[in-house]
Simulated scan of single mutants.
Amino acid sequence: MTQATDHPTAAAEGDRLPPIDVPAMRASARRLLSGDAGDPAPDEVPVMISTLRGHLELITPVVERVAALKPDDDRGWTVPVNCAIIAAADTRRTMRVETPSGRESAVRHARRLARRLNAMCDHFQTLVSDHPETSDQPGEHPEV
């Protein structure tokens, strides 16, 4: 069973954020990125792209909002916050790209979205940790 979080850091500030189901998001990305994944069936590509976009549309603004809630005077958060903000901007640029025609191009685009989703999950999990030094390494986070 997957878990979601209500983001206690954000809630403490009176800013309710939607729950983020990181394990489900990572599972969606893994379908395209695992070494033995292979190419999806032609009819699966649009569904996968739609799912990845939906996850990115949910997590990207949450990452931006949680980053904005971090204290400016805590130098330990400077790098993680700035990296998350830059990653969110990169994700938004990737999301503006229309799905290309042609199966191979569409699969490449879906994989780009999957990599962006993994990055946003990494940033999210870092930002909701107690402190950047106590967070796990990217890609090796426990379920949040």
Rank of each mutant, 00 (worst) to 15 (best):
1 M>D: 09
2 T>F: 01
2 T>Y: 05
3 Q>E: 12
4 A>D: 02
8 P>D: 09
9 T>H: 09
9 T>P: 02
12 A>I: 04
13 E>W: 08
13 E>Q: 10
14 G>P: 12
15 D>M: 11
16 R>Y: 03
22 V>E: 08
22 V>F: 06
23 P>Y: 01
31 R>D: 04
32 L>F: 01
32 L>N: 02
32 L>M: 03
34 S>I: 05
35 G>R: 13
36 D>Y: 07
36 D>W: 14
37 A>Q: 07
38 G>I: 04
38 G>V: 04
42 P>Q: 14
43 D>K: 13
48 M>P: 00
49 I>S: 14
49 I>K: 02
50 S>G: 12
53 R>W: 01
55 H>L: 02
56 L>K: 06
57 E>L: 11
61 P>R: 13
63 V>D: 04
63 V>F: 03
68 A>W: 04
70 K>F: 05
71 P>N: 05
77 W>I: 07
78 T>Q: 14
79 V>Y: 10
82 N>S: 08
83 C>T: 15
83 C>F: 11
83 C>I: 14
84 A>T: 08
84 A>H: 03
87 A>M: 09
87 A>H: 10
88 A>T: 10
89 A>T: 15
90 D>E: 15
91 T>Y: 06
92 R>V: 11
96 R>M: 15
98 E>F: 09
98 E>H: 08
101 S>Y: 09
102 G>K: 14
102 G>S: 12
103 R>K: 13
105 S>Y: 11
105 S>K: 13
106 A>R: 01
107 V>T: 06
108 R>C: 06
108 R>N: 11
108 R>L: 13
110 A>F: 00
112 R>H: 14
113 L>Y: 07
114 A>G: 01
114 A>M: 03
115 R>H: 08
118 N>V: 05
118 N>D: 11
119 A>F: 04
120 M>E: 07
121 C>G: 07
122 D>I: 07
125 Q>G: 11
125 Q>M: 11
126 T>H: 03
127 L>S: 05
130 D>Y: 15
135 S>L: 00
135 S>P: 00
141 H>P: 05
143 E>N: 10
144 V>S: 11
